[in-house]
Protein backbone atom coordinates (compact mmCIF):
# COMPACT_ATOMS: atom_id res chain seq x y z
CA UNK A 1 0.00 0.00 0.00
CA UNK A 2 1.41 3.42 -0.92
CA UNK A 3 2.18 5.84 1.89
CA UNK A 4 -0.34 8.44 0.75
CA UNK A 5 -3.16 8.18 -1.74
CA UNK A 6 -4.27 11.14 -3.81
CA UNK A 7 -7.63 10.99 -5.53
CA UNK A 8 -9.33 13.56 -7.74
CA UNK A 9 -13.04 13.50 -8.47
CA UNK A 10 -14.14 15.78 -11.30
CA UNK A 11 -17.37 16.45 -13.09
CA UNK A 12 -20.18 18.93 -13.38
CA UNK A 13 -22.08 20.58 -10.53
CA UNK A 14 -25.05 18.40 -9.58
CA UNK A 15 -23.53 15.06 -10.64
CA UNK A 16 -22.83 13.86 -7.11
CA UNK A 17 -19.08 14.38 -6.84
CA UNK A 18 -19.39 15.78 -3.32
CA UNK A 19 -21.27 12.74 -1.99
CA UNK A 20 -18.70 10.45 -3.66
CA UNK A 21 -15.93 12.41 -1.95
CA UNK A 22 -17.71 12.09 1.41
CA UNK A 23 -18.11 8.33 0.91
CA UNK A 24 -14.42 7.90 0.12
CA UNK A 25 -13.44 9.97 3.16
CA UNK A 26 -15.78 8.03 5.46
CA UNK A 27 -14.49 4.71 4.12
CA UNK A 28 -10.87 5.76 4.62
CA UNK A 29 -11.59 6.93 8.16
CA UNK A 30 -13.04 3.50 8.94
CA UNK A 31 -9.66 2.11 7.92
CA UNK A 32 -8.03 4.47 10.40
CA UNK A 33 -6.49 6.63 7.67
CA UNK A 34 -5.99 10.39 8.03
CA UNK A 35 -8.12 12.27 5.48
CA UNK A 36 -7.98 15.77 4.03
CA UNK A 37 -10.21 16.95 1.21
CA UNK A 38 -10.92 20.12 -0.74
CA UNK A 39 -14.05 20.86 -2.76
CA UNK A 40 -15.42 23.43 -5.18
CA UNK A 41 -18.44 25.00 -3.51
CA UNK A 42 -20.54 28.01 -4.46
CA UNK A 43 -20.50 29.75 -7.83
CA UNK A 44 -19.03 26.77 -9.66
CA UNK A 45 -21.83 24.45 -8.54
CA UNK A 46 -24.46 25.54 -11.04
CA UNK A 47 -23.64 23.43 -14.06
CA UNK A 48 -19.99 24.47 -13.94
CA UNK A 49 -16.90 22.25 -13.77
CA UNK A 50 -16.34 21.00 -10.22
CA UNK A 51 -13.66 18.95 -8.50
CA UNK A 52 -12.82 17.35 -5.18
CA UNK A 53 -9.32 16.52 -4.03
CA UNK A 54 -9.04 13.68 -1.52
CA UNK A 55 -5.79 12.92 0.27
CA UNK A 56 -5.40 9.84 2.42
CA UNK A 57 -2.44 9.16 4.69
CA UNK A 58 -0.43 10.73 7.50
CA UNK A 59 2.21 12.61 5.55
CA UNK A 60 -0.13 15.23 4.09
CA UNK A 61 0.02 18.98 4.75
CA UNK A 62 -2.24 20.61 2.17
CA UNK A 63 -5.75 19.50 1.23
CA UNK A 64 -4.95 20.12 -2.45
CA UNK A 65 -3.01 17.76 -4.72
CA UNK A 66 -0.06 19.04 -6.75
CA UNK A 67 0.02 18.50 -10.54
CA UNK A 68 1.36 15.07 -11.48
CA UNK A 69 0.64 13.67 -8.01
CA UNK A 70 -2.82 12.12 -8.33
CA UNK A 71 -2.89 8.33 -8.14
CA UNK A 72 -6.46 8.16 -9.37
CA UNK A 73 -8.82 10.45 -11.25
CA UNK A 74 -12.50 9.58 -11.16
CA UNK A 75 -14.11 11.65 -13.91
CA UNK A 76 -17.86 11.95 -14.25
CA UNK A 77 -17.53 13.26 -17.80
CA UNK A 78 -14.86 12.72 -20.51
CA UNK A 79 -13.95 16.39 -21.13
CA UNK A 80 -13.57 16.91 -17.38
CA UNK A 81 -11.16 13.95 -17.30
CA UNK A 82 -8.98 15.63 -19.92
CA UNK A 83 -9.22 18.97 -18.09
CA UNK A 84 -7.68 17.34 -14.97
CA UNK A 85 -5.28 14.93 -16.70
CA UNK A 86 -2.20 17.02 -15.91
CA UNK A 87 -2.82 16.17 -12.26
CA UNK A 88 -2.29 12.41 -12.83
CA UNK A 89 1.03 10.87 -11.82
CA UNK A 90 2.85 8.73 -14.38
CA UNK A 91 1.26 5.29 -14.15
CA UNK A 92 -1.86 6.59 -12.41
CA UNK A 93 -5.36 5.42 -13.25
CA UNK A 94 -8.34 7.24 -14.75
CA UNK A 95 -11.89 5.96 -14.29
CA UNK A 96 -14.21 7.88 -16.61
CA UNK A 97 -17.87 7.99 -17.49
CA UNK A 98 -18.00 8.06 -21.30
CA UNK A 99 -21.26 9.99 -21.65
CA UNK A 100 -20.50 13.54 -22.78
CA UNK A 101 -22.52 16.40 -21.33
CA UNK A 102 -22.89 19.39 -23.62
CA UNK A 103 -23.00 22.76 -21.92
CA UNK A 104 -25.14 25.56 -23.34
CA UNK A 105 -21.92 27.27 -24.42
CA UNK A 106 -21.45 24.53 -27.02
CA UNK A 107 -25.09 24.57 -28.17
CA UNK A 108 -25.03 28.32 -28.77
CA UNK A 109 -21.69 28.04 -30.57
CA UNK A 110 -19.48 29.72 -27.96
CA UNK A 111 -17.21 26.73 -27.45
CA UNK A 112 -16.44 23.40 -29.06
CA UNK A 113 -16.75 19.85 -27.84
CA UNK A 114 -15.23 17.33 -30.28
CA UNK A 115 -16.27 14.25 -28.30
CA UNK A 116 -14.39 11.64 -30.35
CA UNK A 117 -11.19 13.63 -30.19
CA UNK A 118 -11.57 13.93 -26.41
CA UNK A 119 -12.16 10.18 -25.95
CA UNK A 120 -9.25 9.39 -28.29
CA UNK A 121 -7.00 11.68 -26.28
CA UNK A 122 -7.84 9.72 -23.13
CA UNK A 123 -7.26 6.39 -24.88
CA UNK A 124 -3.87 7.45 -26.22
CA UNK A 125 -2.63 9.32 -23.15
CA UNK A 126 -3.79 7.21 -20.23
CA UNK A 127 -2.10 3.87 -19.71
CA UNK A 128 -4.52 2.66 -17.05
CA UNK A 129 -7.94 3.71 -18.27
CA UNK A 130 -11.30 2.35 -17.11
CA UNK A 131 -14.16 3.55 -19.28
CA UNK A 132 -17.65 3.23 -17.83
CA UNK A 133 -20.64 3.27 -20.17
CA UNK A 134 -22.84 5.33 -17.87
CA UNK A 135 -25.78 5.43 -20.27
CA UNK A 136 -25.96 1.65 -20.23
CA UNK A 137 -25.43 1.65 -16.46
CA UNK A 138 -28.35 4.04 -15.98
CA UNK A 139 -30.56 1.77 -18.11
CA UNK A 140 -29.48 -1.40 -16.33
CA UNK A 141 -29.77 0.11 -12.86
CA UNK A 142 -32.95 2.06 -13.61
CA UNK A 143 -31.44 5.32 -12.38
CA UNK A 144 -28.91 7.88 -13.51
CA UNK A 145 -28.58 9.27 -9.98
CA UNK A 146 -26.08 6.66 -8.79
CA UNK A 147 -23.36 7.34 -11.35
CA UNK A 148 -21.09 8.43 -8.48
CA UNK A 149 -21.36 5.02 -6.79
CA UNK A 150 -20.96 3.14 -10.11
CA UNK A 151 -17.68 5.01 -10.67
CA UNK A 152 -16.48 4.37 -7.10
CA UNK A 153 -17.14 0.66 -7.60
CA UNK A 154 -15.20 0.70 -10.88
CA UNK A 155 -12.31 2.48 -9.17
CA UNK A 156 -12.16 -0.12 -6.41
CA UNK A 157 -12.25 -3.02 -8.84
CA UNK A 158 -9.47 -1.44 -10.90
CA UNK A 159 -7.19 -1.93 -7.89
CA UNK A 160 -6.18 1.75 -7.81
CA UNK A 161 -7.45 2.20 -4.24
CA UNK A 162 -6.46 0.49 -1.02
CA UNK A 163 -10.10 0.82 0.09
CA UNK A 164 -12.37 -2.18 -0.19
CA UNK A 165 -15.92 -2.48 -1.45
CA UNK A 166 -17.21 -3.25 2.04
CA UNK A 167 -15.71 0.01 3.37
CA UNK A 168 -17.69 2.03 0.81
CA UNK A 169 -20.78 -0.06 1.39
CA UNK A 170 -20.65 0.65 5.10
CA UNK A 171 -20.25 4.36 4.38
CA UNK A 172 -23.26 4.23 2.04
CA UNK A 173 -25.36 2.55 4.73
CA UNK A 174 -24.50 5.36 7.12
CA UNK A 175 -25.02 8.29 4.77
CA UNK A 176 -27.74 7.29 2.32
CA UNK A 177 -31.46 6.81 3.11
CA UNK A 178 -32.36 3.15 3.58
CA UNK A 179 -34.76 2.97 0.64
CA UNK A 180 -31.81 3.67 -1.69
CA UNK A 181 -29.46 1.05 -0.17
CA UNK A 182 -30.25 -1.72 -2.67
CA UNK A 183 -29.88 0.65 -5.64
CA UNK A 184 -26.54 1.90 -4.37
CA UNK A 185 -25.33 -1.62 -3.64
CA UNK A 186 -26.15 -2.67 -7.21
CA UNK A 187 -24.42 0.45 -8.49
CA UNK A 188 -21.30 -0.29 -6.47
CA UNK A 189 -21.07 -3.79 -7.92
CA UNK A 190 -22.12 -2.75 -11.46
CA UNK A 191 -18.76 -2.61 -13.23
Amino acid sequence: MPKNENIILCGIGGQGTILASKLLAAAAMKRGMAVKTAETIGMAQRGGSVFSHIRLGEDVHAPLIAPGQADLIIAFEPAEAVRHLHMLRPGGRVVVSTRPIFPTSVLVGQSQYPVEEVIDYLKTHVEHLTMVDSEQAAKDLGSSKVLNVVLLGAAIRSGALSLKEEDILEAIHERVAERFHALNENALKYV
Binding site: I12, G13, M43, A44, Q45, R46, G47, G48, S49, A79, V82, R83, L85, F102, P103, T104, S105, V106, Q110, S111, Q112, Y113, P114, E117, V118, D120, Y121
Partner: peptide, 11 residues
Protein backbone atom coordinates in the same frame (compact mmCIF):
# COMPACT_ATOMS: atom_id res chain seq x y z
CA UNK B 1 -5.17 19.13 -25.48
CA UNK B 2 -8.20 18.81 -27.73
CA UNK B 3 -10.61 21.77 -27.56
CA UNK B 4 -12.60 21.46 -24.33
CA UNK B 5 -16.08 22.85 -23.76
CA UNK B 6 -16.27 25.95 -21.61
CA UNK B 7 -18.44 25.22 -18.60
CA UNK B 8 -19.25 28.39 -16.71
CA UNK B 9 -21.90 28.24 -13.98
CA UNK B 10 -25.35 28.81 -15.48
CA UNK B 11 -28.90 29.49 -14.33
Amino acid sequence: LPPLPVRPPVL
